[in-house]
Structure formats: structure tokens, C-alpha cells
Design a protein around this nucleic acid. Sequence first.
DNA 1: ATATTTTTGTGAATAATATGACAATATAAC
DNA 2: GTTATATTGTCATATTATTCACAAAAATAT
Lengths: 213, 213
Amino acid sequence: MVSNRKCITRLSRYKNALKRLKALGFIKVFSDNLSDAAGVTPSQVRKDFSLFGITGNKRGGYKVDELIEQIQVILGKNEIQRVILVGAGRIGAALLRYKGFEEGGIRIVSAFDIDPAKYLANDAVPIRPLEEMTQFVRDEKIRVGIITVPDSAAQRIAEIMAAAGIKGILNFAPIQLRGTDEVVINNINLESELENLIYFVNAHSKANSAKCD
Amino acid sequence: MVSNRKCITRLSRYKNALKRLKALGFIKVFSDNLSDAAGVTPSQVRKDFSLFGITGNKRGGYKVDELIEQIQVILGKNEIQRVILVGAGRIGAALLRYKGFEEGGIRIVSAFDIDPAKYLANDAVPIRPLEEMTQFVRDEKIRVGIITVPDSAAQRIAEIMAAAGIKGILNFAPIQLRGTDEVVINNINLESELENLIYFVNAHSKANSAKCD
DNA sequence: ATATTTTTGTGAATAATATGACAATATAAC
DNA sequence: GTTATATTGTCATATTATTCACAAAAATAT
Ligand SMILES: NC(=O)c1ccc[n+]([C@@H]2O[C@H](COP(=O)([O-])OP(=O)(O)OC[C@H]3O[C@@H](n4cnc5c(N)ncnc54)[C@H](O)[C@@H]3O)[C@@H](O)[C@H]2O)c1
Ligand SMILES: NC(=O)c1ccc[n+]([C@@H]2O[C@H](COP(=O)([O-])OP(=O)(O)OC[C@H]3O[C@@H](n4cnc5c(N)ncnc54)[C@H](O)[C@@H]3O)[C@@H](O)[C@H]2O)c1
């Protein structure tokens, strides 16, 4: 098992780049085509592949179709990944209705909320009472959940998810949920992403005005 | 200038942790309180601070208020950061209406779209025709933009933004926009975040079933 | 057939990050 | 005041990630 976040993220990038290259008619690629398309170095590509036991052909590169297939298997894309979401508010609803996940083999099968005004039993993705979540997760053997509730509720929802058997959580609430041996957590903090960007924009403009001295 | 993404992200985390600690009544903190609250090691905290020239008192720790203030200045939170958004669709609308950014000193001052059905001249955050963006950015000296248009339009919007004088872009479209010397880009790919999570959930369950052999 | 070229796969070298260790020093205890 | 104690700030060390370099292998050219 490769336990390097960045490396897995690159794998997603390679997969996306490969799909573009395939659409452009490429049948095979070399590590430097792919690295170009993915914005990394060729040796990074080869090293990553080596880590996952992906092999190509000396002087022949990699067959695009096979490569996509191999990466997809590593990323679990050989089967549809069923996911639930808790908190059908603004951002939750945006995610629920996004078609792109399904195209990538990720299906949000149900949402849950505490607000009865949000319930929608017969939608493409039903929105159900929170109380039904635990049973649903157990019955459907769901392992991945998305949290889009207010920060004050996030920790509690994470605990309910973990107790129900969820093994991975994508959390959008602006609190840093801590993972355990049992549950992997990926915290997305959009304000922090903006702060990060703003820091670099400011640092950059200072560096440039310094250059002008 | 510190040019380490992770380090800036930690700074956001410290800031958030400090605000929580302050709410709990802390007047001063030590590197190990803070590291606990932020989920890093104490030496990481001190190392980061040292990098930014933040100093405390030997045996006295750091005064919470001063520390928050210093970090906020580094992150540009001493002034309101004005930001625009292009693509007032599902995810764009969720971001537009999110109150949390304003609380953190980040204000989305206007959105832009090509679909006249989306225009809303007199909303809290107006949604205007895309054609008005360039002028708006110039007049208002906006430096940061958020892209929430379909992937097919993202590259073009990024170029228009750059030409108008935008220096930093937070991109939600699932294509990897490439930064330049002039423009910093932070790509958020939510599908890739889910793929990442799913990889670790699967890898973990395999590792555990292996343990059971 | 043989030589030349191209490209992989990987171990070694380098670079980037994080942790550890501890001297310096401020505070508190006596 | 003196001693003991706690905590920072930073340099040394360890760990992790990336790039380099090149032998091995396959394809192509001669
Ligand atoms: N909207 C954004 O653009 C945005 C941006 C960054 C972060 N976030 C974060 O995402 C989260 C959701 O934001 P939002 O704007 O969608 O908020 P929202 O208020 O629109 O939606 C929250 C939803 O969660 C539901 N909810 C509340 N408590 C619950 C509970 N205990 N169990 C189940 N459901 C519960 C509410 O009924 C509501 O439907 C927040 O933590 C917010 O900080 C949102
Ligand atoms: N909705 C989600 O949850 C989600 C999740 C992951 C990624 N994304 C990505 O975010 C982006 C937006 O997704 P969405 O679901 O909000 O889509 P959407 O179709 O709801 O919204 C897109 C908006 O962009 C506008 N638009 C299109 N072309 C434009 C142009 N050239 N200039 C200005 N505006 C333009 C459209 O009029 C529309 O309002 C997409 O790239 C999508 O892949 C969305």
C-alpha cells in the first residue's frame, strides 16, 4: 500500500490527463507526454508507476487504454463507489445534483438531514431523516460519507458515521476532524484555500514591488 | 517569503485553533497546547513561527490575542479581501451565499455569468454579465477570482481573469489550470478528493483483511 | 545480423520537510 | 538573591519526496 497522499492525487491527475490524451487520439504515451499533460516531471511519472507496479514497454511507452484501466483499478474505479451525504444545505445540494461524480463512477446514493423541510423521498438522490442514516449505511454497506453540515454539528455526525461503519469521510465543515485507525478523514476547508491563495498573491506582489526598488 | 503551501495551510489551522482556544478563555498558549489543538507537533509549531518571525516568551508562551493578530496579518486578514466569482451555477451560488467567508474577512463582491437568467443586479452579491467582468476587476482593483464554470470554459475564464489583472485563482473546474509567474492558481478537484479518500478506505480494508489471515 | 536509438525502471543522489535535542532565558519557588 | 523549572528558538538529525543518471531492453536503422 502506498500511503502518500500526494502520490494518489497525482494518480488522479494522470488518469484525467490520459483521458484527454485518449480523446486526442493517443494510443500510447511516453512518460514525457504524460508528464507534460499532467504538469509533473517524467521521472516522477515513472517513479509513481513503479511504486504501484505499473509497467510499460522499454522504448514502447504505455498503452493508453491499459494504463487508464490500471490506474482506475488502483483508485477503485472498476466498480461504482456508493457514497452518502449528510447536510443537504447549499453546498450539500450542489454536490447532490452534480452529474460529474456519477460519470467518474462515484454515486451519492442518499442524503440525510435533520430539517424536515429538506426531506425528498423520491428525488434522484433521496434526502432522508438523519435517524435513518445508521440503518441505511449498515444495510447498504456504505463506507464513504460526505459531511456538509454546520461546523457545530460536524463532529457529532462524524461520530455517528463512524459508529455506523463508515470508513472514510470527506468533511466540508471548517473544523479539522481527526482521523482514527478506523476512519480516514479528508478535510476540505475552502476558506483556508482562499487564505492560502491570498497569501501567495500578496507575497508575490510584495516580492515584485521589492524588485522594482 | 515562505513559499511552502503546507506551512501556510498550517498557519490557517493555527489561527482557527487559536480562536477556539480564545473562546475557551485562554489568554496565553504554549507550543504544545496549540500543537494539540491544531493536530501537529510542538516543534512544528515553533519551527513555523520561527519561519515567519513570530516570537513568544521563554517560559511564557504566546499571548493568544497577539498571536492571532500576527497570523492574521500574514494571511492578509487585517483588511477585507475582495474577491469575484465567475459561474453562478450550483456550486457558485452556494459559495456566493455562504456567510462564513465574510466572517473570515473574505468578501465575494460580485459574480459574473454568461446566462442572462442568472443575472441579479441588486442582490447582496450581484450577478452580472461576464462582459462586465474585466472593467469591474480593473475599476475595483480585484486580485483574486473564483472559477465555478464548466470545465470547458475554465481555461478561457482564467485567461480573461489574468488579462484583467487577477493575480490569484481558486478553480473548481476539474481541469488542472497551470499557474504562471503572474498568476497563482489553486485547483480544487472534488472528485479527485473523493478518489483519494476511496483509495485509502479500500487500501485500509485490504490491509485489515490481510491482517486477519 | 549488428549497431544505433529510444525509453523504461530503479537505485543512488539531492532536496524538501519534519522532528528531536538542547542551550538560552524568563518565570516561579523558596 | 539563588535555585529549580518550564518553555522558547534554532541547529542538528531523521524522514520523506523528488530528481538524476544510467543499465537493460525493445524498436528501428543500417
Ligand atoms: N456554502 C458554502 O459555500 C460553504 C463554503 C465553505 C464551507 N462550507 C461549510 O459547509 C457546511 C455547510 O454549509 P452550507 O452553506 O451548505 O450550510 P446550510 O446551512 O445551507 O446547510 C446545512 C444543512 O445541514 C443541515 N443540518 C444541520 N445540522 C444537522 C445535523 N445535525 N444533521 C444533519 N443535518 C444537519 C441543515 O438542515 C442544512 O440543510 C458548513 O459547515 C459550512 O461552514 C460551506
Ligand atoms: N456542483 C458541484 O457539486 C461540483 C462538484 C465538483 C466540481 N464542480 C465543478 O464546478 C463547476 C461548476 O459546476 P456546477 O455544478 O455549479 O455547474 P452549473 O452548470 O450549475 O453552473 C455553471 C455556471 O457557469 C455558467 N457559465 C458557463 N459558461 C460560462 C462562461 N463562459 N462564463 C461565465 N459563466 C459561464 C453557467 O451559466 C452556470 O451558471 C464545473 O466545472 C464542475 O465540474 C461542481
